[in-house]
Design a protein around this nucleic acid. Sequence first.
DNA 1: CAGGACCTGACAGCAGCCTGAAAAGTCAAG
DNA 2: CTTGACTTTTCAGGCTGCTGTCAGGTCCTG
Lengths: 221, 221
Amino acid sequence: MRILLVEDTEGLGEAVGAQITEDGHAVDWVQSLRFAQNSLRTTTYDLILLDLMLPDGHGLDFLKTIRASGNSTPVIILTARDQVSDRINGLNAGADDYLIKPFDLSELSARVAAVARRYRGNPNPLIRVGNLEVDLHDHRIQRNGQPVELTAREWALFEGFLQRPGILLSRQQLEDRLYAFGAEIESNTIEVYISRLRKKLGRDAIVTVRGMGYRLETDET
Amino acid sequence: MRILLVEDTEGLGEAVGAQITEDGHAVDWVQSLRFAQNSLRTTTYDLILLDLMLPDGHGLDFLKTIRASGNSTPVIILTARDQVSDRINGLNAGADDYLIKPFDLSELSARVAAVARRYRGNPNPLIRVGNLEVDLHDHRIQRNGQPVELTAREWALFEGFLQRPGILLSRQQLEDRLYAFGAEIESNTIEVYISRLRKKLGRDAIVTVRGMGYRLETDET
DNA sequence: CAGGACCTGACAGCAGCCTGAAAAGTCAAG
DNA sequence: CTTGACTTTTCAGGCTGCTGTCAGGTCCTG
C-alpha cells in the first residue's frame, strides 16, 4: 500500500513512518497541509494518516476539502486523547477511523491493516527479481507480465531462494527446505526441481555454482 | 432505525440504550446471545451493537452464525482496548465497525450515524467481478445478466471471497468464516461448497491453488 | 580426454481435489 | 406434532496432474 502521512511532530512522524515501512508499505511523509495537497495531486494513495493540528491549518478542513473534490481515499485521523469532538467531526467529515495519541505502534499496524482489508486495495507486497514479479502471499508470479504457474514443491524451493536472493544455497539447505528434518534423499530431486524452475522462470533465473550449490540471479540481464 | 443492543453490563447497556433512544432510534436491549438469537428471529434490525464477552458465549461466534445463516445486518462490535485480535477477527467475520471501550457516548452516536449513512445513502453497492454483478447488501447476483440464487452458506463463502477478490484464502480461513470458533470440520465441506459455487457462478470463477487454498478470479481473459 | 558433476525427458504411483448422491438436519405450514 | 421442501453435511469413487526416480545425455575441470 502507498500511504500518505501528514504529521508535523518530528518524533511521531519518524516512528510511524518506520513502523509502516516495516509492515511493507510505502510511506510519503509531509509536515503540512500545503505539501499534503501537493502530494495528492501527483500521487494516488491507498490510505491517508492525518494529524489534525498542523502549522498551516486544521486537518478536518483539509479532509472536507478533498472529500468535496471527490477523493474517497480512506483516512485515519490521529488525534489527542481529549479531543472527542474532533473525532466525531472527523467521522462526520468522512474519516474512516481514528487513533488516539499516544497510541501503540502495533495498534497502528492493526488499524492500517484493517482499513486496507476493508478497502481491499492491493495488500500484498510485490517482490521484483530480474524480470519476475512475485506476490509472496498469493503465490503468484509474473514473468514479463505473463503469469507463471508453480506447483507446491516448485514454489517451496523458489521461496527459499526468494528469502535469500543472490545468496548461495547449498543442496543440503534446499533439501532441508523441502523435506522434514532428517529427510534422506537419495536421488537428484533437487536437480530435477531446479530444472523445472528454470524451464518456467527462465534459463538464467538460477545460477549453478559447481560443487557448492545454487543462487538466485537478482540482476537484470 | 431499529437497533439490537447485545451487552451484558447493566450500566453500559443502559447508557447506550438511552443515548441511542435520544438519537431517535428504537432499541431492543438483550444481555445474552440466546436472547439476541431470539430477537433476530422475530424482528428485522437495521443495526446490531455487539459486545464480545457475553455470559453464554463469544460474540464473534454469534456473528459468524448469523452471517452463515444469511443475515447481513450491519454490526458494530464493542470491544475492550487491548483486544486487537478480536477487532481484526471481527472485521474478518463480517463486522462493519467497532468501538473501543470505554467510548464516549457522542462517539457512539457518530458511528451509528455513519453506518446508517453508509447503508442508506449507498443503497446498492454493486461489485463487478469477472462476468458477475453482485449486490452485497441484497445478496443478489447476476451472471451475464441472469440472476443466480445462492443458499445461505454458499453466500457466506462467496462473500468471504468478495471481501478479498483475487487474494488466496486458505481452507482454514474459509472454515473460520463459516463456523464458530473451535468447530472442527472433518469432512470436505469446503470442497463441496466450492464445487457448488462453481456450478452456479461459472467454472472459472474460483481458482484452486493446490495445497494452499482458493482464490476468486477477478480478471477477464 | 577421462571422470565427475549437473541437466532433463519420461513415467509409474499416488496425494489432493472434485462431484454425485445419500443421509441428516432445518424450518415453515397445516 | 407431522409433513414436505429445502439446505447442509458426509461419504465414496473417480480423476487429474504432481512427485520422486531413473537413465541417458551434456558440460565442466583438471
